[in-house]
């Protein structure tokens, strides 16, 4: 699927649409998820599915509409988890949108604005999940979807350091983390944590078996907490690593980490202020990663300080824990 949304064509066409007075403003389409196809008059209609989650009831209804309006009876799962109804004649837009509305399904958005957030399954049902990514995606979609920005602004939520939602290549990404704390009294020296840690951040003491923890290696996945039979490793706090300025495309960029352990309730503030900063500093057609390069990360961090101070600075590390090496 090409991403030729009909932006800036500034043309208005008159078409025969039954029951309407026949005006389709192509400029209006850019705010909606109508994506021009190679085939004449045909468009892909991108639905708004934050986090890629749909109720089965809705899916059945969407399926009926796709069957009715897709000239080829096909849908496509977009790379950002939204369902696209392919081969829709633009003369059917009004009717399709009205029918979608009836079942509570909105159309997504293209162009220079906050896009539908993506998310993994999160802590609701994924055993690795540390944050409720689905709830966060829903919240961000409700609060920020469609907000104008200098260029597209993609957000995502990963529930753990495996980072399936790819926060490292997102304009603004949130990845779940947990800070582990160890309680010597309850520890039996069973060594399971040192086995469970895939980062070699925990070494078992050769005699007592108790953990020797290297904070520099910890990526806050919580495997030690999950594996510990005696609840000796506990969660001190959950939060998000915040990453900014990543993108894929022709010239991929890796995002930079700007905050650790940002609590759930600060996520809306972080997005709000970041969009504010982007709109104040970004040039038209410039992704936020490039704005950061041009204006400077420090400028952004200064602006974000009131929000990010509720987390930890990006270079923060958990204190060393466990028994001494010798």
């Amino acid at each position: 699927m090409t991403d030729h949304f009909i932006e800036d064509k500034s043309n208005k066409v008159t078409v025969d649409v039954e029951g309407h007075d026949g005006k389709v403003d192509f400029n209006d389409l850019k705010t909606g998820g109508f994506i021009k196809q190679r085939q004449k008059d045909l468009f892909a209609v991108r639905l708004r599915c934050p986090g890629g989650r749909l109720s089965t009831d809705k899916l059945v209804e969407i399926s009926k509409l796709a069957h009715k309006y897709s000239k080829k009876s096909v849908v496509h799962f977009s790379f950002r988890q939204s369902l696209e109804i392919l081969y829709v004649d633009y003369k059917d837009f009004h009717e399709l949108v009205a029918e979608l509305k009836k079942i509570g399904q909105e159309v997504a958005s293209c162009g220079p604005r906050v896009r539908v957030p993506t998310a993994c399954g999160g802590c609701e049902y994924n055993p690795n999940g540390l944050t409720d990514t689905q709830a966060m995606a829903k919240m961000v979609d409700e609060k920020f979807f469609g907000t104008r920005t200098p260029h597209k602004f993609k957000t995502c939520f990963s529930g753990c350091p495996i980072d399936c939602a790819r926060t490292k290549e997102m304009d603004y990404g949130f990845q779940g983390v947990v800070e582990p704390v160890w309680d010597e009294e309850a520890c039996t020296g069973c060594t399971i944590c040192s086995e469970a840690c895939k980062e070699d951040a925990i070494e078992a003491h050769p005699v007592s078996g108790k953990p020797i923890f290297d904070p520099m290696k910890c990526i806050y996945c919580g495997d030690c907490i999950r594996a510990c039979p005696t609840e000796t490793w506990k969660a001190k706090r959950y939060g998000h690593i915040v990453r900014i300025g990543g993108k894929h495309g022709r010239h991929p960029m890796e995002s930079v980490e700007v905050c650790k352990f940002l609590p759930d309730e600060k996520v809306p503030d972080a997005i709000h202020k970041t969009v504010e900063w982007y709109n104040a500093n970004g040039k038209r057609g410039e992704r936020i990663g490039n704005t950061l390069k041009r204006v400077g990360l420090t400028h952004y961090l200064d602006y974000m300080e009131p929000v990010f101070k509720s987390g930890s600075p990006a270079d923060w590390v958990v204190p060393a824990q466990g028994v001494k090496k010798d």
């Binding site: 055993p127 069973c190 060594t191 399971i192 469970a196 999950r226 594996a227 039979p229």
Partner: peptide, 23 residues
């Protein structure tokens, strides 16, 4: 290796209790 990394986590998550571990 992998078995000891994964199985105890899953056992705990199923609501069982690990009483003893011997290496």
């Amino acid at each position: 290796g992998e078995p000891i990394q994964n199985v105890p986590k899953s056992i705990k998550e199923e609501g069982h209790k690990i009483l003893e571990v011997k290496k």
